[in-house]
């Protein structure tokens, strides 16, 4: 464990908590993409199957359980409890166009052709693009509530911090995983446009408005 990975995990946890607070406090999931939340749930389930086979540390097990339960709690809030506030019209990204290619790519490019490894690789590729429906929704509505933009900033920062973690681990431990690094780089790049808007607007107290 290193400071970059810890900061990344905490940023990830913060993002998940911010999202739950936003939905619970405003009793609405307006501006949030349910499609992205479905993809995140698929990412966690397909990545954390080793919960039952490998014990790495209490921290590792605990965080995995928190991520899985919170993602299903978010789905419940969005598709059941506050279903009436879900923005069906704008949340129209076809996630099958993400799920299928990621799965095919995981079958073709992976570290070893075993079910666990292929599913882990699938979750890595899927996580890289899982935010697209959310960014698509923000671009369609043209704006985002400030807490939603804080959620996105924390979520985008987590994988950016992981990139620093991978640089650190390469030099400190000689450990690296090209699949995770490439996917993590793409995932972070997808946020760049949002990061720019967040830093130039939201941090100045303005609302996140996308140029129409």
């Amino acid at each position: 464990m290193n400071i970059f990975r810890l900061a990344g995990d905490l940023s990830h946890l913060l993002a998940i908590i911010l999202l739950l607070i936003k939905i619970w406090k405003t009793r609405s999931c307006a501006g949030i993409s349910g499609k992205s939340q479905i993809l995140f749930a698929v990412v966690y389930v397909s990545r954390y199957l080793d919960l039952v086979t490998t014990f790495i540390s209490l921290y590792n097990t605990l965080m995995k359980l928190v991520f899985i339960t919170s993602s299903f709690a978010t789905l419940y809030l969005m598709y059941v409890k506050f279903k009436a506030t879900y923005d069906h019209n704008h949340d129209s990204f076809r996630i099958e166009f993400l799920l299928l290619p990621c799965f095919v790519l995981a079958l073709l490019i992976n570290a070893s052709f075993t079910p666990l490894e292929v599913l882990w690789t699938f979750s890595i590729y899927l996580e890289a693009v899982a935010i697209l429906p959310q960014l698509f929704l923000v671009s369609k509505t043209g704006e985002a509530e400030s807490i939603t933009s804080h959620y996105l900033f924390a979520l985008g920062s987590y994988r950016a911090l992981y990139l620093l973690n991978w640089i650190y681990r390469y030099y400190a431990e000689g450990h690296y995983d090209l699949i995770a690094i490439f996917a993590g780089a793409i995932q972070t790049i997808l946020y760049c446009d949002f990061f720019y808007l967040y830093i130039t607007k939201v941090l100045k107290g303005k609302k996140l408005q996308l140029p129409a």
Binding site: H12, D50, F67, S112, E117, W120, N165, H175, D177, I179
Partner: peptide, 10 residues
């Protein structure tokens, strides 16, 4: 054993 491809990460 050596963790396969970063499995010790979240």
């Amino acid at each position: 054993q050596e963790k396969l491809s970063g499995k010790d990460e979240l």
